[in-house]
Structures are given as C-alpha cells and as structure tokens.
Nucleic acid binder design. Structure first.
Length: 572
DNA sequence: GCCGTTTTCGGCCCGACTGTTTTCAGTCG
C-alpha cells in the first residue's frame, strides 16, 4: 500500500508551494488529492494497474503522472526540486498557529531563518518585530505557538500510528519466522497521540525476524540493534521499536509492554504479596522458581484473582482497584453503536449525497443516520439557509419512503454565533430530529464569553447535542478558553448531550473529560462528523476515547435503538 | 492543478478577526 506515501508527498508539495506563493487553486488541488488518496479504501497501486487513476476524484493528467512516478520510484521530480528549494524548517513552521506561508517567507527573506529553533531565538531577542506586517503581538503569538508545538514534539496522531503499524504487521506476517505480531505500548492503549510504535513479535529465530524487518523500505535509520530487538526511524520521522520474544513468552511480553509503567508497577506489587513475579518472560513462582507461561492476557490477571483489564484502561487510573473490587466498567464497543448522529452531505461541505450516506450506514449495520449539515453563517462550508434546509427535510422524507432498512434523521449543525444567538430560530430547529450546536467562530473570545455562548445554546430547548465541546485540534490548535466544569454542569441540568467527536485530530471530548462527564451524570454521543463515506468508519476512534474514559453502553445515546433514541431526543 | 464544457479556458471559497496599519494584509475556519 503506497496510498499513505503518495498522500504524504502531495500534502508536502502543497505546503512547499504555499511558501513559494504559488497559485492558490493549484495548491488546493494537491491538498484535495492528498486527502482523497489518504481515504481511498483500495490500494492505489492496484488502481494504477487495473483501472485508471484518472477516475479518482480530483486526479487529472498531471497528478496521475506524479502518482505513477511515486509508486515506481518512491518520489517524484517535482517534489525533489521543491525540497531543494525550500528548507525543511520552513514547512514545519506552517504548523505554528498564527504563522502562515506569507509571514514565513517574509521572515526567511529578511533574516534567513530556516529552523523553528532559530525562529524561537529570533522571537525571544525581538528580531521579528519590525519586519513588515509583524509587530509585538504577532511576535508573542509566534513564540506561544512554538511552545505549544514543542509540547507535542515527536508525537503522531493515533490514526497515523495505526496505519503504519498495520502496514508493518502485514509485512511481518509474510516472514516465515514470524509466529505472531501485535502492537503494544500507548498505541495498543489507543492514546490520542503516540510517540513510538512498539511491536512485539513471537518467533523461534529472532535473527531472521530482524533481518526481514530491516528490509522494510521505509526505514531511514537504525537507531539501535540487539539480538532480539531493534529501534528504527522511518521516512516520516516515526520511531518503531520491535522486540522479538520466544513463543511461550509472547503473552507475558505483550502484557508487559502494553500497560504503562504505573500499571505494571502496581501489578507487580500485588503479585509479590502472592509470591509471584510478573515480567516480560512469564510469571515466576518465587518459592520454587517455577515459571508459568500465560496462554493469553486473561491468565495474567487470573493469577492475581482479577478480571481481565482491557488495554485502554491500563494506566493506573483506578482500574486495578476496580478490578479487585469487581467494579470494572463493561466498556462500550463498536458493535453497540446503532447510528451516527453527525454527518455532512454534499448539501454543505461533505462530498456524498444523502442517499449514498444512508446506504453506506445501512451496510454498516446501523439503524439510523442523521444528516447534520452546517448552517448559513458558515459560508466556507456552504452552510444551509432556512429555505435549503426545508428542501433537504422534504428530500429526506422522500428518501425514507424509498430506502428501507435505515432511518435517515433530519438535522443541522447549527452555529453558535459570537453574540450567543444560534444561527436559526427555534421555529426552524423544532422541525428537526437532531439539533447539534457548535462553535466555529470567535475562538479567541475570553473564557466568560465563550462559556456563556455554549451555555446559552444548551439552554435552548431544541438543542440536543453540543459538538466537539472544547474545539481543540490535536497538534494544531488548543481548545478555546471555556469553563468546562460549567459546561458539564449545565449539560447535566439541561439534559444536553455532549459529543465525543471521532475525527482523529479532534477526539473531543477527550478521555478525561468523558470520564468526568459520566461522573456528573452527562450523557454522551459518539459521532464521526465525517464529510465523506469512508469517514464513517472513524467511529472506532471515538469508541476508543469512550473506553479510555470508562464509558459503558448506557452512557452513550447512539447505542439505543431508534425508538428509544427518538424518545431521548424528544425529552429535552 | 482539476473540472466541465456552448471542447479550450474560466471558475474554483468567502468573510470575520486580528494586528498592523493609516486603508489593508495575513490567517483561519
């Protein structure tokens, strides 16, 4: 699968072209192609061989040629030339909030600054202020942006880590020496951001496994190598740690490398009181040094008289105590989900028709799916005005008669305007099955103001759900300054449901807040907020957040069958 | 760069906000 590589290169090209100041629409074509390819369900190499790349949305003659070049050579000339032209650091600077391509170029031209470190120094010694268009405030904003970025340095999104881990696992499974391979570490715990990808392999011949692994074409550097383990860096800057263990030790090892340190330490303490020592090789009886090799992870916990603790919980947040007292949550799972209540169609900024969405939702085994396009103020997204919304409702009514096996719910993602009002009157909102309210503007308003806006939305009797309640974008934007305690309290009081948004760079509410919300008696909904069919599958990211937040089926309203869901939505 | 098309080139994503200006440019959603 080279989809990821092609997508990555196109996105990189777009960034570099932006810094060069090239045509906006040209840049957008690369961005769009990058996104489309990242979300392709098929292997792009297969498409190239069997049909036509030109049939893919957003790919024309020029990009088709470049895709072929990348598949055949791993790169393309256009990309290599841009890389010679544009220092790497300038591209990285695009990630700094408040700093765009134009100012990066201004700074580069004036001060010849090519790395984020140099930029930080220049900002600290006040060399940026005074440059055209940059004053004291911008300089401070840049400095703040750099610090935020550094706090997340070296981490990748869970979605990226999973994609790469799958690719590597698929490759390893082909090696005859490999018996089993699983990811461990924070990736297996499904944390939102991942440092290293950690893989555990069981094999009789570690040398063969390492040999085979080091042939992986994406490896650019071998950081460490031993007889049974290695650490490498991939072309995308990601570190992968691979450890090979004897087959009989596999489950002990997988367990050992999955829990975080605190979880493991606490388990070891408990084991010691029972005369046992748990480590990556197995479980040792201290009195006679007998070794037990667990045949699965359940056995590890069973030896300590505990029920199985799922990987998502193994972070010493009370799960061990809960296990001992037999009050672990029964975690919500993918199969519990009966529908998606936040989906965009091609009526606003989505790319699929309502009919396509409904059919795909039905294929996924859903009972219902809500169409929640943007409202009129969000011009970028071609938000719906009252008249178009009414027409959409009519269409959905008609489709519900034609399509069986799935109920399409009418809905809207209505903007919470900067003046605390909603983008639509109650007269309109009351016509809809699902009303989601969310903030898309005025992110920089102060705490009191933003909190008041969201509280006002929750107090509206027709608003069912607050989408992405904190507004953060992982690696790009911190949440807006909102008093989350007030939001949770008001949600509980007004029967407003809070969303766990499954978009891989949102995951908002996050696991901590989801847990807190549950404690305060707030109900939640796990939605994708997707703009295209493939994105419906991203619901799994939201499920993982929920599981990490100890949520059970009963805490999540879209596990309810349709009739009960409608009751909950009506109850407000 | 793609797309649609009255097939050969014009349209494609717009408006608020901020900070820098002294009438506007850059950034962002």
């Amino acid at each position: 699968m080279k989809n990821f590589l092609v997508s990555y290169i196109f996105s990189d090209i777009a960034d570099m072209m932006e810094i060069k100041g090239e045509n906006f629409f040209k840049i957008r074509a690369y961005r769009k192609a990058s996104q489309v390819i990242a979300n392709l369900p098929e292997d792009i190499e297969e498409i190239m061989k069997t049909s036509s790349l030109g049939s893919i949305e957003g790919i024309g003659k020029a990009l088709e040629g470049k895709i072929k070049e990348i598949i055949e050579t791993g790169t393309c000339r256009h990309y290599e030339e841009l890389k010679k032209d544009i220092p790497r650091g300038l591209v990285e600077m695009l990630k700094i909030p408040g700093l765009g391509a134009k100012r990066i170029k201004t700074i580069y031209d004036a001060l010849n600054i090519t790395t984020i470190d140099e930029l930080e120094q220049a900002a600290k010694s006040h060399k940026l202020r005074g440059l055209p268009g940059i004053g004291v405030k911008t300089e401070q904003a840049i400095l703040k942006g750099i610090q935020m970025l550094k706090g997340k340095a070296g981490k990748m999104l869970l979605s990226t880590a999973l994609y790469l881990a799958e690719e590597i696992k698929d490759m390893l499974k082909f090696l005859p020496a490999v018996e089993k391979v699983e990811e461990a570490g924070s990736l297996r715990r499904r944390k939102e951001l991942i440092g290293n990808i950690y893989l555990v392999v069981s094999s009789q011949s570690p040398a063969e496994v390492l040999e085979g692994f080091l042939d992986y074409p994406r490896i650019t550097e071998v950081v460490a190598r031993d007889t049974d383990k290695t650490s490498v860096v991939l072309d995308l800057g990601v570190q992968v740690d691979l450890r090979v263990v004897e087959p009989r030790s596999f489950w002990a090892a997988l367990h050992h490398y999955t829990g975080n340190e605190d979880h493991n330490v606490k388990l070891k303490e408990i084991a010691r009181t029972r005369g046992l020592d748990i480590n990556e090789n197995g479980v040792f009886k201290e009195k006679n040094n007998e070794v037990i090799y667990p045949g699965n992870e359940e056995e590890v916990y069973k030896l300590l008289d505990m029920p199985y603790i799922i990987p998502e919980l193994r972070e010493d947040k009370g799960e061990i105590e809960a296990a001992i007292e037999d009050r672990l949550p029964d975690p919500v799972k993918l199969a519990d989900i009966k529908g998606d209540l936040h989906v965009h169609s091609n009526w606003s900024d989505g790319i699929n028709s309502i009919e396509e969405i409904a059919i795909r939702a039905r294929e996924m085994g859903y009972e219902y799916v809500a169409i929640t396009d943007h409202s009129k103020s969000l011009k970028v997204a071609r938000g719906l005005d009252e008249e178009r919304l009414m027409r959409q409702i009519e269409l959905i009514k008609k489709l519900n008669e034609e399509i069986t096996g799935i109920r399409i719910l009418t809905g809207i993602e209505v903007d919470i305007l900067t003046n605390e009002l909603l983008d639509f009157d109650d007269e309109i909102l009351k016509e809809l099955d699902v009303v989601i309210a969310s903030v898309h503007s005025g992110f920089k308003q102060d705490r009191e103001k933003i909190t008041r806006r969201i509280v006002a939305a929750m107090e509206n009797p027709f608003v069912n759900i607050i989408a992405h309640p904190t507004g953060r974008i992982l690696g790009k934007r911190d949440s807006y300054d909102v008093d989350i305690d007030v939001i949770l309290k008001t949600a509980a009081e007004t029967n407003t449901i809070l969303e766990i948004n499954s978009t891989p760079d949102r995951l908002d509410l996050n696991d901590h807040l989801a847990m807190k919300a549950k404690e305060m008696g707030v109900k939640m909904v796990i939605n994708t907020d997707t703009h295209e069919l493939e994105g419906l599958k991203d619901i799994r990211y939201g499920i993982w957040v929920a599981r990490r937040g100890w949520l059970e089926k009963g805490d999540v309203i879209n596990t309810l069958p349709l009739s009960q869901l409608l009751e909950v939505l009506d109850k407000k």
